[in-house]
Amino acid sequence: MPTRKGILLVNLGSPKSTEVNDVKEYLDEFLMDERVIDYRWFFRSLLVQGIILRTRPPKSAEAYKTVWTPEGSPLIVITKQIQAKLQKLVDVPVEIGMRYAEPSIENGIRKLTQQGVTDIVLFPLYPQYAMSTTETVVEKADEVRKKFFPGIRINYVQPFYNRDIYIECLAESIREKLPENYDALQFSYHGVPERHIYKTDPTKTCNLNDCCSRESNPSHQFCYRHQCFKTTETVIQKLNIPKEKTIVTFQSRLGNDKWIEPYTDETLENLPKKGVKNLAIVCPAFVSDCLETLEEISVEGKEEFMHAGGENFHYIPCLNDEDRWIEVVKTLCEERLDDFFLV
Rank of each mutant, 00 (worst) to 15 (best):
R214D: 11
R214G: 00
R214S: 14
R214H: 15
E215S: 14
S216P: 02
S216E: 11
N217C: 15
N217W: 01
N217S: 13
P218S: 08
P218E: 05
P218D: 04
P218L: 10
S219P: 00
S219W: 00
H220V: 00
H220F: 01
Q221A: 14
F222M: 01
F222G: 01
C223R: 06
Y224R: 00
Y224G: 02
Y224A: 07
R225N: 08
H226R: 06
H226F: 13
H226E: 06
H226L: 04
Q227S: 08
C228V: 08
C228P: 06
F229W: 06
K230E: 11
K230W: 01
T231G: 10
T231I: 13
T232A: 15
T232L: 13
T232C: 13
E233N: 12
E233V: 04
E233M: 05
T234D: 11
V235Q: 02
V235N: 05
V235M: 10
Q237C: 09
Q237V: 08
Q237W: 01
K238S: 10
I241Q: 01
P242D: 12
P242W: 13
K245S: 15
T246P: 07
T246L: 14
T246G: 14
I247F: 10
V248G: 02
V248N: 09
V248Y: 04
T249C: 14
F250S: 07
F250A: 03
Q251W: 06
Q251C: 06
S252N: 07
R253P: 05
R253V: 11
L254D: 03
G255L: 04
G255W: 09
N256L: 12
N256Q: 10
D257Y: 11
D257W: 12
K258L: 14
K258N: 12
W259S: 10
W259H: 11
I260N: 03
I260D: 00
I260H: 04
I260S: 02
